[in-house]
Amino acid sequence: QSPEQTEAADLPACNSLNPGRLQLVSKLKNPSGSCSVDVSAMCWEIAGFKEPCIITACEYIVSLWKPLDTRQWEKLYSWHFTEVPVLQIVPVPDVCNLVCVALGNLEIREIRALLCSSDGKREKQVLLSSGNIKAVLGLTERRLVSSSGTLCDQQVEIMTFAEDGGNKEKQFLMSPEETVLTFAEVQGRQEALLGTTIMNNIVIWNLKTGQLLKKMHIGDSYQASVCHKAYSEMGLLFVVLSHPCAKESEPLGSPVFQLIVINPKTTLSVGVMPYCLPQGQAGRFLEGDVKDHFAAAVLTSGTIAIWDLLLGHCTALLPPVSDQHWSFVKWSGTDSHLLAGQKDGNIFVYRY
């Protein structure tokens, strides 16, 4: 296997409105030429050492990059797909040397596990599930949750991996009888799982028993809200939502993210904090990621915006670089880095 290496970053931190907050660390150029769709960061064990690696996904190739030094990356493995393109990378926390991907055209048709042979010399892929899959999320303790089918035939399934990625166990959660669009774990309540549904409800499951505990309506102000993060504190659920369908024309600017609080006992909820763009900036939420108390979003304008959820305001804006709009953004799970991607395959790694 001939090693493919990235170029060292030679660009300044560009004309971000808060240039001190984002420092460009390195840049990966995916040479495959096909459209870039996602990025993720995870630890991978290489020659007995756990390395903080980057996974990139193009339409038909997923690649694992290992760090050579702080500024360069070497491609270690590539998994190829011939029939169905990749839609998203699905990292599974607490599993070593395994990552999942969702494949499909507009909707997910397959979920596959990507791993390598025990001698580390060959890439392997295993089909985990197929069908009309609506949502998937990797959970702590080596679990993967997915929902498939619609209404009465909907199945919500938890798959548990062994430490080496093998021996999968399956368990089903009770269906809420409305299509589940997204999942989120609940910080502070590891046995709870949240889902958002097509009817603007948030549902809560007990992951141990599979029970559906509650269905909570969160209002019709914003359709198709996506739940990114949930915290359980003092008997309440704090939920970070994004609003891809919010109108841009609201007088105070439409919220890109919003923090709401729900009392799970009564299902009553109130908005705590809207996270809007600074004045003069326009755009709707296109794609984003929340980690700890930081939220990052790619906007329809092609700019990336970052909010400190505790401070309550936008802390950094990253306009398109080299006239290329941003198309996806992820927080690195392994350090305090932001991974920003463009459709042409360029991935920029920023320290935040």
Binding site: R189, T209, L213, V261, N263, K265, T266, V270
Partner: peptide, 23 residues
Amino acid sequence: CNEADLGPISLNWFEELSLEAPP
């Protein structure tokens, strides 16, 4: 946020809802 907006709050909501929900 207060109980006027959200109703009575229980610190054991998860356990209580698990007892109330169908198995």
